[in-house]
Structure formats: structure tokens, C-alpha cells
Design a protein around this nucleic acid. Structure first.
Lengths: 217, 217, 217, 217
DNA sequence: GATGAATGAGATTTCATTCAT
DNA sequence: AATGAATGAAATCTCATTCAT
């Protein structure tokens, strides 16, 4: 009906959006192709006009999402700001993506370990990862970040932290407010930049900075 | 044959070990019950003498592994040492588990995210998580760790970092040497405790810039 | 092939007819779903488009058959004829159904006892039973049938007689001719209406003996 | 334990009794060999020392039960009494067997149609059937029963009536009292002997007889 | 006689994918 | 482009039966 009147692009979009919702709520393995089709309001056979397989649907979602994420991260990467600011912005991009489309993030987070080849083959994922690494590296090169830690490992710590927080929102409890998202941003940023050890071990300036951050939250 | 001569416990163990190997190499969803049985050298029906279902096998592996992990973490938790040392030891426990049984860690890491209900139902997993959180809390209580970050969030950052490094070893490339494992330990520890920012870089200018970032975010 | 060209209804019918033949020859429990599919000339998976399970196929056959039987019995039930005539017609309906579709009757007769829950759950079966009882009751109310026997018990005797004759045809030997069917009709009718005892044989001595029997039983 | 101390015969008996209970409550197909063994308090492998297969257990129960039934029917068959009395006694034997061992009767009734070959191959069943037929035949030969009905058909009507009443007790509702069993006996006897049609169609003596029967019930 | 671990044929059911219409 | 009937590979799980101890 409505679908029949749609052009080719629309139906494809319809199917992708439906797939995001269905994958988010039932999981990739547990849902059937016909669930996606029903959610999209089309016959399940039609999915195969637009995608080669169920897996290609997931892959497309991944690719698209990571492409957007990648673009955002890149725009930050190249900005002429201190490394700390770039790091802060990257954290915000990732964690705030939750608010833009929780179902989408839920899918990307939940299914990312599903097919190891997805992770390796989807260029965008690799690229996004590399971009994180470059942000750390540039910070080190410019002397703002310590250079006694491997940038690759550091970017994995960063990615792991973000991923784990999103996973918690997906699997345990979604953030209750905008404020909770911002708190998470602040914590990841604070830990990654300044570490867990209490101020006395550091210089007084750091103490002050943290104090301000707390009040502005 | 050989299996027939085994006592009850032996065959159960045989099946669990075989399952770990098979899950590690093919993944839980992709492998069949008969793959496990073949790997164990028994008829597939026998698996159902010891477990109710394929899923119960995974659950058992989870439970057992996390119970061990939990015991190790707890013994650290209660030690009378500086929080930093306790943190260091926990990181070592988790990352060195890789060397003890890579297949097992591979399974636990890879499949825990795919089975959200397992993650929630297996008490041991929840407990291990809680133990991490308590280590952070105690460090805060004793004044060694800063108390302006939420302990729950901080423990998730810690867990995420460890998980992501293990995942990298599983999916991308295993550590080439003992040294590489130790390097990872050192990096996670360094970042989590002291942060990424190089101490000398902390100047008043950074303060100002962060203030700007907050408003523009 | 041929099946693919069929409409939805046709294939469903195809499967039901095939199931009747297969159930009749191998029995419900002994046959496999793939036997039904092969008999229908379709892939076995197709059965699950039309039915939820093998059991639902049997249930459908039961329901459909008993609905027909019930309709026939009801039309007799309401006719304005002597009770004896109504009884005669009901007997004819049941026994002649054999000629219309022996396989079907074979299935219904053979499997109804094996599936107690079906017997209870399929309304049509219960209803048909109730209709038999009402025929007896109405005969009693109108004074044509004796009212010193419980109508429920009497209808069970009637049903049992019919069922047993059909069972004999199914399991021992089918009727060789139309005439044999009619003979069976006549016998059931004669016994049920007038009893086994030859009218001339009714003498006072019998009375006395029955009395003795009662006490000695 | 207890079983271990038992001689060969006892364990066999133990298993048969257990099988009767299990078959009665779960049905032959639905129960497992291990259910029988557990009920008997022995290991399931032991069943195969006494019986070749699960089916042989059922067959043995059938054979034994029908042998008893047959003996009882035969003793009646040869008694020097009027045919009506013999008929009355046969009905009593069958219906009262319910009271002696409901589980056993439940099994025999429920599973008799299971394996067509059981019915054909178990000599005792065929023999019992033949005995019923001979009772009718002898009644006809001696002039007490009408001879315009086929004895084979008449005995099937009789058997069907009894079977159906037992089936009702098994599947719908067991008799609530001794009295209900006796009522059933009386009804089957009355119908089979004298028929359903009200007295006016018969001779006055019959009316009187029935009247007495009613009061003595 | 007794045990119960082990076997493995086999059954039902699911569902991604194809393709005639 | 759109439909959904049809396919059939594959997977899990069951359980009667065997047999070493």
C-alpha cells in the first residue's frame, strides 16, 4: 500500500529502519527476516531485492552508522584545538549518539561482536578506530598527552570505556536523563585525562579544574 | 570406548573442555551440539545426560569461569594494600587469565555480550562486577582515589578497558609475548590511575579552553 | 511444480488429504511429518505454513469430520419423526460414512481414543456425543423410549456399538459389500431398540433367575 | 535395595505393576522406559533383562489381563444357566474389573487400539472376543435369544458398549460409587436384552421385570 | 542380577532464501 | 516492484536399547 507507492530508495530505507528497530528489540539472531518485513509493512521476499541476505542488512546498518560516526570523529580530529578538547568532543559524539537514536546504538553495540568479520571487513569501523588512535597520537606528538603509553592501547581503553557505558545503557538500564549522559561524559573524560588517583598526588591546578567541572554539571 | 571407561565427572569435564574449544573457534551460535560431542569424542546424545541444553553448557562455562575470576578478585579486594596496588592486581588477574586459557577467555569475552540474559542471570558475573566497583569505592573512602567520579561508572570504564584489550587479542591479534601482556597491564593501570594528560602540560591555558568546550558542547 | 501453482487453500487441502491417507495406513504416532509431505508431493517444511504442528493436522481432521457428522446428526435430531426412525437414521449416518471415506473414518475412529485431550478439547466431538444423548432423551420424553435407563449411558452404548463395528472394519476386515453395511445397521438398530431376547422366550422363569443373578452377583 | 533382595520373579512383577501405573497415568507413548524403572525403583537397564522391549511390557500386561478376563468369561460361558444370566454375568465381570484395578483397565482400554497387531496377535484378546460370541450363539441355539441377528455383530455391539462405558470412566470421569457401576451393568443388560423401545411395544411381563429391576437397584 | 553411561537413529521444527506470478 | 508459497538444509533434542562394569 504505502510501500507500493514508494520509490526504490524509500523502501530500502523503510527496511533498514525496520531492521534497526527489530534488531534492537529482539537481537539479530533471534529475529526473522519476516519480522523485519512485517515491521516495514512489506512482504519478506522484497527484502531480497534490496539486500543479498539478512546479514547484509546488518552490515549496511553498521557501515552507515560508522560512516556517520567516522565523519563526526574526523571533523573533530582535524580541528585546531588542544588534544584534551578533541578528546572531550569525541567522547561527547559517541555517548550523545545514544540520544539521537537509541535503537541504532543498541544494535551497533549489541551486535558488533557477532561476526568478527564484520568488524574487520567494515572499513568504517577500522577507520573510526584509527581516528581515535590518531587523536591520541597527535596529543602525544604535540606534547599534551604523555607519550609513555602506546597510542593503540590507549585508544582501545577509550573505546572500551565508551562501549561499556553504552552497553550498560543498552542491557541494564538506559540513562534517565540528559544529565546522566553528561555525567558519563565527564567521568570518562576525567578518568582518561586525569586518572583515578586523588588530587594530592597531582598539582593544585588540576584540583581546581576538577572542582569547576563538578559545579558546572 | 575411552569415554565409556570414564566416571561421570570425567565425561562432564570432557564435554565442558570440548565446548570451550569449539565455542572459541566457531562461536556459540555457529557451532552445533554435535561439534562439541565430536570434539569430546562422545555421541552427541550424551551431552544431554549432563546438560539440559546447549545453552546450559555455555552458562556452566560462564559460571565456573566467573566464579574463579571472582574468587581471585575478592582475595585482592580484601588485601590490606594501597588502592593503587589493589587496582594493579585486579588488572593483572584479568589480563593474565588470557595466558592461562586463551580459549576460555575468548569464549567468556566473546559470548558474554551476545547473551544479555546470561549476563544478567549468572550471579557470578554480577558479583565480579560489583567487586570491581567496591575496589574503587574503598579507594575513594580511604582517600586515595578521587571521590568526584561515580564508582559505578569508573568500574565500567575499568571493565570496558580490560574487555576491549582482551577482545582485541581475541579478534585481531593475540599478544605475541608475555611482555606484551605486561605492557597492556601497565598502560591500563597508568591511564586509569594517572590519566592521559602529561603532568607538565597542565597550565592555566588548558583550564580556560576546557571552560569553552563545556559551553560549546 | 504443480504444488507451486496451487492456491493457498488447495495446498492446505492437499496436505489434509495426504495426512488422512498416511494416518490411516501408518497411524498418527508411527508416521512422520515428512511422510505426509511426501504423500502430498510438497516439501515437509510447507506443512508448517499451514499448521503449527503435526498434532494440529490431526486436530483439524477431527474437527472437520466431526463437524460434518454433527451437522448430519443434528438434521436428524430435529426431524419430526418417531424416535425409532431418528435412531435408525443416525446409525445409518455413522455406518455409511465408512463408504464415503474409509481412510478418514479409520483415522477418526482409531486415533480418537489415543488422544484423550483431543477428544475433550474438540468441541465438535463433545457436541456430537451430546446430540446422540438428546435423541435418546427426546425419545424418552415423547414416551417412545423407556425412561428407566439413563440417557447418557444409553447413548454411550449406542456410540460404543457403532464405534466397535467401525473398528472391526478398520482393524479386522472391511465390509465386503453395501449389503454388509446395511446388515450391520439393521443389527445395531434391532438390538438397541428391541434387544437380544427373543419375544417368545419371555417367561416367568426368566424373571426368577434374574432375581437370583442379582443377589449372587 | 529392596529390589536387590528380590528374586527374579519379584522384580519382573515389580516392573509390570510399575508399568501399569505409569501407562495408566501418562499413556504408553508418552512415558519413557526410565519412568517405568523409576516407578519400580530399579535401573532402567534392568527392564531389558525381563522384557525384550518397551512394547513387550505392554503386550505382557495385555496378555495377562485378557487371560484372566478370558478365564472368567469362560467359566460363565459353560455354566448351566439361562443365556440372559450368562450375559448378565459377563457384563458384571467386565465392568466390575474396573473396581479391582482401575489403572490396569485404564491401560487395557486406552492402549488397545495402539498397536493393531497387539489386538490381532494376542490370542487371549481374540479368544475373549470369541467367547462373547459363543455366549450369544448358545443363547440363540437354545432359543432364548433371537436368531435374526448375526452373533458376531451382536457380540461386537456388546463389546463396544462395555468398552465405551469403561472408556468414559477412564477418560471422562470414574464412577463415583459402587452403585454407579451397578447402574451401568443394569443399563447395558437392559438395553442389550430388551432394547430401548418402551414397554407398550412389548409384552406386559417385560414391563414388570424391568420394574423390579429398578427398585432393587 | 543390577547399574547407568553411552549410543545414535530419528523426529519435529525453524527459517533464510528462491522464484513463479 | 512486490508478493508469499514453496523449498530444504540444518539444528536441537529424545529416548529405546546396549553393554562394560
Amino acid at each position: 500500500m504505502a510501500a507500493r507507492a514508494n520509490g526504490q530508495r524509500d523502501t530500502r530505507r523503510l527496511l533498514l529502519d525496520a531492521a534497526v528497530r527489530v534488531f534492537a528489540h529482539k537481537g539479530y539472531d533471534a529475529c526473522r527476516v519476516s519480522d523485519i518485513a512485517r515491521e516495514a509493512g512489506v512482504a519478506h521476499g522484497l527484502l531480497y531485492h534490496y539486500f543479498d541476505s539478512k546479514e547484509e542488512v546488518l552490515e549496511t546498518i553498521f557501515r552507515d552508522t560508522w560512516a556517520l560516526m567516522l565523519a563526526a570523529v574526523r571533523s573533530v580530529e582535524e580541528a585546531d584545538e588542544p588534544a584534551r578538547v578533541r578528546l572531550r568532543k569525541v567522547i561527547a559524539i559517541v555517548l550523545r549518539s545514544w540520544e539521537l537514536d537509541p535503537d541504532l546504538i543498541r544494535v551497533v553495540v549489541r551486535e558488533v561482536t557477532r561476526s568478527p568479520h564484520l568488524q574487520r571487513e567494515v572499513d568504517e569501523v577500522r577507520e573510526a578506530f584509527a581516528a581515535l588512535e590518531r587523536i591520541v597520537e597527535r596529543g602525544q606528538r604535540e606534547g599534551e598527552f604523555r607519550d609513555d603509553v602506546d597510542a593503540g592501547l590507549a585508544s582501545r581503553v577509550l573505546y572500551g570505556a565508551l562501549d561499556q557505558i553504552l552497553t550498560g545503557w543498552v542491557l541494564v538500564r538506559p540513562p534517565e536523563s540528559d544529565e546522566e549522559v553528561k555525567t558519563a561524559e565527564r567521568v570518562v573524560y576525567a578518568l582518561l585525562c586525569d586518572g583515578l588517583v586523588a588530587a594530592p598526588a597531582r598539582d593544585p591546578a588540576a584540583l581546581l579544574q576538577r572542582g569547576q567541572t563538578r559545579e558546572s554539571a
